[in-house]
Design a protein around this nucleic acid. Structure first.
Ligand code: SF4
Ligand code: SF4
Lengths: 139, 139
DNA sequence: TGAAATCGGAACGAATCAGTCTGATTTAGG
DNA sequence: CCTAAATCAGACTGATTCGTTCCGATTTCA
């Protein structure tokens, strides 16, 4: 029930990239320096994000990363799915029949839980994560 | 974002045990046979569930398992936490400071997401999972 | 044309997870 | 009271995935 560190770092990286949206292009090394994450890790993260279509990459000197979509149109679910693969709590949700998929009585209930969970993540756009402060009273 | 197979099997096992709640005591081998899961795996699962306090175990001949609480008072979150440990999407939610917990701007937002997610799981009691049929129109 | 800078993918090591097994404990019966 | 069976409980091994790191292919600027 804990998402991988790569996914977490991907969220941080995307949040950092969202701030440079106006500038347009930012290098991975720049994002690593500003966020404090290890540079190679950021490189791997942006690689996956680019493959998923969330980031736009420009090779060569002066190149860098760029948000492929508006920050408001990117949700946590998108980032998590880009790094961790499809959101599926159990194997049967994905279609991969487990060993006891025939007798399992809770199988029909998993899609409901899965949808509720994904919906909760989809309700959090990237713009909300970019807002740093003013949320101290929730602790 | 996928819970471990052990947690999934734990849910199935608990669901199966809930049906024998009236009888009182059921052996782990019995649950394994009825659910179709591998017997050793069920043994490991019930061991963890007992340690967490969700099941009541009776040693010796004629012993077996028993629900420690009413089926309505056991939620998915309880089962998952018993097997997978605390529900914490990221390290900072648990209190384990990650490498960049100081500069991280999304850290204050994770508890909100985490609570929403756990709430979604806590809303599913074991009694709902025990109801086998009559949910075909949701597909 | 030369060179630098960037992303992209591939390789390595570590950690966790899943599965299996054997042993300690307890009760029922003789 | 003793034997015996049955049960849970914990420890071990193998495998998969995750995390990290490094080096090469590609592109643009000077
Ligand atoms: S069929 Fe049942 S046991 Fe198999 S993956 Fe789905 S929920 Fe889990
Ligand atoms: S502080 Fe930021 S990077 Fe670290 S675990 Fe929390 S959200 Fe992730």
């Amino acid at each position: 029930m804990r998402l991988s560190n790569l996914a977490d770092y991907a969220v941080v990286t995307m949040c950092q990239a969202a701030r440079h949206c106006g500038g347009g292009k930012v290098s991975a090394a720049e994002l690593a320096s500003e966020s404090g994450l290890p540079a190679p890790t950021v490189q791997k993260v942006v690689s996956k994000l680019t493959s998923a279509g969330l980031l736009r990459s420009s090779r060569g000197a002066g190149g860098g990363l760029q948000l492929a979509r508006p920050a408001a149109a990117i949700s946590l679910a998108d980032i998590v799915e880009a790094v961790e693969g499809p959101i599926a709590l159990t194997a049967c949700v994905e279609g991969e029949d487990c060993a006891v998929h025939e007798k399992c009585s809770v199988k029909p209930h998993w899609p409901i839980v899965n949808s509720a969970l994904r919906g909760a993540l989809a309700e959090i756009p990237l713009t909300r994560l970019a807002q740093i402060p003013q949320v101290k009273e929730v602790a």
